[in-house]
């Protein structure tokens, strides 16, 4: 009795997490690909935040005498069909796209992972409820819901009544009309991860170390957070990084339907969608946003890989 109290009490929660994170950070900085990727992402975040300082032109400034210019001295990445500077639009677009990516990852972590853990660990009605909801949402025509909400919202927002609508309206305003995108993401982006985590937990639950933890009388919460969560990290990280292109594409699709960001505000998705239309006449209009998006995603992936390796409790043994 006393020994168990000793091992489970005071020293454990204080010392171990500190060393876990320190070790992880140590391993992360040793991974060159991850470090370069991290640097790129930090730079990108800075560019997004200081877009108004970094961008050579305002994103909406047109020049109808210089439309569809190829890359050159005046415009490094060329101009679009209205003579707007592509580089500046990419820089401002990073704000929208990174915001969308961030929200997507947040939803994955805050909604998808806990629900998956709960479904896998508690089983029975929790499992049924969560997993049938996933089935329903996967088949559900989410696009319609977004159309309904956005159309009514915009109609109502013309004459905002009451505090709630006012808040929603200002949210939509602040985000440049991204509310529909967030709703769509909220409905779908956590589904994959929830199923994935549940699958992992189902398999982990029966393993010796969980049994052992149970034998020692560990509480459910402790088993979940100390033992199950770290072991589901690998697929979660992959899912989170892979959710990002999906989220950016969702934003592009919805903006295209008039349910997303309000023009002339750019986003990477919009730039790519417009670029595809012009790709044969003006390839640079597709090339630059597509390459920037690809590079960003690759960096997110390498960083994800690095994080996975760094946080993997088993690698520490080696």
């Amino acid at each position: 009795m006393t020994t168990r109290a000793a091992t489970l009490d005071a020293p454990v929660p204080i010392r171990r997490p500190a060393s876990l994170w320190r070790d992880a950070w140590h391993r992360l900085v040793q991974n060159r690909a991850a470090v370069v990727s991290l640097a790129y992402i930090v730079l990108l975040l800075l560019i997004a935040v200081f877009a108004n300082v970094v961008a050579p032109f305002p994103f909406q400034q047109q020049d109808l005498d210089n439309t569809d210019l190829g890359p050159g001295a005046g415009h490094l990445f060329g101009t679009d069909g209205l003579g707007r500077d592509e580089l500046s639009r990419l820089i401002y677009g990073s704000r929208i796209s990174l915001a969308v990516a961030l929200v997507d990852v947040l939803i994955v972590l805050v909604v998808g992972v806990p629900l998956g853990l709960a479904a896998g660990f508690f089983g029975r009605w929790v499992d049924v409820l969560v997993m049938r909801t996933v089935d329903v949402l996967l088949a559900f025509p989410n696009l319609l819901l977004v159309i309904v909400v956005i159309t009514y919202l915009r109609a109502v927002l013309d004459q905002p009544q009451g505090p709630l609508l006012g808040i929603i309206g200002s949210l939509d305003g602040i985000t440049g009309g991204l509310l529909g995108v967030f709703i769509a993401l909220g409905l779908v982006s956590w589904l994959t991860v929830a199923r994935l985590v549940r699958g992992q937990v189902l398999s982990l639950k029966e393993k010796e170390f969980i049994e052992a933890a149970r034998m020692t009388g560990a509480a459910n919460g402790r088993i979940i957070f100390r033992h199950l969560l770290p072991n589901t990290l690998a697929p979660v990280i992959v899912a989170a990084t892979f959710g990002i292109p999906g989220a950016i594409a969702t934003e592009a699709g919805l903006s295209f339907l008039g349910l997303g960001v309000r023009p002339p505000l750019p986003s990477w998705g919009i730039l790519i969608a417009e670029g595809v239309r012009n790709m044969r006449a003006f390839p640079h209009e597709l090339l630059f946003p597509a390459v920037v998006l690809a590079v960003t995603l690759i960096c997110f992936n390498f960083l994800g890989d690095g994080l996975r390796d760094a946080l993997d409790p088993k690698l520490k043994v080696d």
């Binding site: 292109p245 950016i248 594409a249 790709m279 690809a294 690759i298």
Partner: peptide, 17 residues
């Protein structure tokens, strides 16, 4: 990684075009 990420980085409508 590069191949797979490039695969996923291009949305389906870009890919097919």
């Amino acid at each position: 990684s590069l191949i797979t990420v490039t695969g996923i980085a291009t949305p389906p409508f870009v890919r097919v075009s």
